[in-house]
Amino acid sequence: MVSLYVTSFERSAGKDLITMGLMDRLKRDGFKIGYFKPFGHFPYQLGDIITDKGAWFIHRLFELDDPIESVCPVIITQELKKHNYKKPITGLQEKIEKAFEIISDQKDVVIVHCDYNFSEGSSFGISGSVLVHLLNAHVLFVERYTCDFCIDFLLELKRVIGNPVMGVVFNKVEGAHIEEIEEFVSFFLERNEMKVFGCLPTDSLLKAVEVSELAHILGADVVCCKDGIGALVEGFLVGGMHVDKFITYMIKHPSSAVIVGGDRTDIQLVAIESGARCLILTGDLYPNEIIRTRARANGVPILVAKSDTFTVAKGVEAVVGKLSLQDKQKINHGIKLVDKGFSFENLYNTLNLTVDVESSSGLVQ
């Protein structure tokens, strides 16, 4: 049995997508797969069992037979953290070991899914470095190539952890960096015994989020064009600058949600006429009739949020680009991207896995 720990040193690197892509391909290639998530952060009630919402979704998606209470043995809640701060909680490591023993039984490969980052669980004495040795796992980092420091982090973790760290897959890579990774970074890391298993570019569909989801996340009131809240937003702009400069940004970033103070009617009009996906007015200030009329004419939904512009911008930033586990269209699309951009041949050679059957379409319907 081979265990593969999918982790990162920053959040929102795309571990959910890579995990599902790996599981889909391994399953199609005939391997008996298991899924294990040592720590969960989003409690989900299933009868008398409390599990992690994300773990439950993946468990159902791949029709796994393992007991859900073993799939994610530790749910980290505020209550659990407070209790641990007062007095160290014991027995969690044993609980994880026992659950993993159940999950790994009669499996060829078990994907161990890190929810947050490599330091997850440190306050309980079970960080990524502990889990790697506890579960005898190979480590695959999923990282966004955002700066040169990520290479330094990878090399340092390789030095500290050693052989279990087998490599990295770069995800959500901007076009300008793809050539740099393929021509220079990959060879450099390979020389330092760090394999590069792929370089997946940013994708407009995966980055997009529906206007309706933004309204839900922000607790905003939809005051115009409610029939257009299914539109997809691929980014956002904060309309806090001069109108001329804002026009320049709108041209460069179409299909964006525009976050603007409810009193900035000049920016609101330009955004509507320039093809904004929606307006998010802040400060609990509602649009005047002229703005409403132009928005209806152009089919631009208007959301009114109670919070200030900075708070709204942070809330939108947290959701744009994050893969929703409920969106099967995005999941299927993402799995195809992993299947195309990830070097499974390299992975199988590294883990000494042999494919016995031909691949067939195993994407979720």
Rank of each mutant, 00 (worst) to 15 (best):
L134Y: 03
S12A: 15
G321S: 06
I111A: 05
S122Y: 09
H83E: 14
F170H: 03
L200S: 12
C150T: 15
N136V: 00
K207D: 09
D152R: 09
D284P: 01
F184L: 14
I18H: 02
S186T: 15
A137L: 11
H138A: 09
R294W: 02
Q106N: 15
Y35H: 07
Q78I: 01
K86I: 10
E79Y: 08
N163D: 14
E120A: 08
L64H: 07
G321D: 04
I126R: 08
C278P: 07
G230E: 10
L237T: 05
L17R: 05
D263Y: 01
K53V: 03
F124W: 10
V316L: 05
E183I: 08
R25M: 09
Y145P: 08
H242A: 12
A305I: 03
F62T: 12
Q329P: 02
N288P: 04
W56L: 13
F246D: 02
L140A: 02
V319W: 00
G121K: 00
S127C: 04
G21V: 04
L279E: 11
D29N: 14
T19E: 08
A137I: 10
M250R: 07
E97K: 14
I33R: 04
L154C: 05
V112W: 10
R292Y: 02
T350G: 00
F62L: 12
V71A: 00
L200T: 01
D244M: 10
V2E: 13
L347Q: 00
Y249N: 14
V222A: 03
H333T: 09
D105M: 11
V160C: 03
G47E: 07
E63F: 01
G321V: 09
D66V: 05
V238L: 03
N298W: 05
V165T: 04
L218V: 04
F39R: 14
N288G: 13
N136L: 00
E94P: 08
L325N: 05
K328N: 07
D308T: 00
K322C: 06
H113K: 13
G262P: 02
A231R: 14
S3W: 08
D284T: 00
R28G: 14
V357G: 01
E213C: 04
P73V: 08
P164C: 06
H133F: 08
M250H: 07
D66R: 03
L157T: 02
T354F: 04
K340Q: 15
H216Q: 11
Q268P: 04
K81T: 09
E273Q: 15
E213L: 12
S359I: 01
S12T: 08
D244V: 13
L4Q: 06
V173E: 06
H41M: 03
F62W: 02
N288R: 08
L237G: 06
L347N: 01
G54N: 15
V71Y: 04
D263W: 00
M166A: 00
A55L: 08
I76T: 12
Y145N: 01
A13Y: 02
A271V: 10
K172Q: 14
K328Y: 06
H177L: 12
